[in-house]
């Protein structure tokens, strides 16, 4: 089967991962999958100023996802929307299992992700970028979290849907995956499919995650072992 952009069914779009692209943030990362670009910044663990936010036995993880006004064809009004609120939530829950929040009682860790350009798969790009930014910040983690979506078009499972494929697919199923434990920390699906196919699509997404995982590790090595200077563009 040939896809609209010429990729094979199990092929990702071109992927670029960079760590340490911002100076102020304790950790930062840029993930570019095709034209979709996510920039993540991490602050913390730091003292939470408002007492009511503090949790006595663990740290508080905050995640904010935002699409920049000029990231899509139709301008997006600045500020939060119902969509960005939901994605912020699922992103936070996808990342939390790999953190040792119990080590940071009463403290807070903040993740900010800005989608600079959007062309399908912004939530998965956001999770990939946030995960590398957390590691770049030196926050103790069990593993990196990796995310990608998959679907089924013309009877075949396809990885990393883009453009028209999002309308053609029988389902859109994004996952977040913790490779070392082989666990799933984000699972969503829109569509209508038998169980067999749901499993097939999920397995393909896991395969995609393994590829992204290597790129994430490579970006962190370049930043911290080879000390390569990275920039956003």
């Amino acid at each position: 089967m040939k896809r609209i952009d010429g990729r094979k069914p199990e092929e990702l779009r071109q992927l670029v991962v960079k760590a340490g692209v911002l100076e102020r943030a304790q950790g930062s990362a840029l993930v570019k999958l095709g034209r979709t670009t996510a920039l993540a910044a991490v602050y913390g663990p730091k003292r939470l100023f408002s007492k009511h936010q503090q949790i006595p036995n663990k740290g508080l993880l905050e995640a904010h996802y935002v699409m920049l006004p000029f990231s899509t064809d139709d301008r997006i009004r600045p500020g939060t929307s119902r969509r960005s609120t939901e994605i912020s939530k699922v992103m936070r829950l996808a990342l939390e299992p790999v953190l040792f929040l119990e080590e940071f009682p009463r403290a807070g860790i903040e993740i900010h992700v800005a989608i600079l350009q959007a062309e399908a798969g912004t939530r998965t790009a956001a999770i990939n970028a946030a995960s590398v930014a957390l590691a770049d910040a030196g926050i103790p983690m069990k593993d990196l979290v990796v995310s990608v979506s998959a679907g089924k078009i013309d009877g075949e499972y396809v990885l990393d849907l883009v453009g028209k494929e999002e309308e053609m697919t029988e389902c859109d199923l994004p996952i977040a995956y913790i490779p070392r434990e082989k666990k799933i920390s984000l699972l969503q699906m829109d569509g209508d499919m038998p169980l067999k196919d749901v499993k097939g699509v999920m397995n393909l997404a896991i395969k995609g995650c393994e590829i992204i995982y290597e790129k994430q590790k490579q970006a962190l090595k370049e930043r911290w072992i080879d000390q390569v200077k990275t920039t956003i563009v």
Binding site: L22, R24, A25, L39, A41, Y43, K46, H64, V66, P69, P78, E110, H112, A114
Partner: peptide, 10 residues
């Protein structure tokens, strides 16, 4: 329009 995003500074 301009936004001072929390990404840019603590």
């Amino acid at each position: 329009g301009a936004e001072l995003s929390p990404m840019a500074s603590p």
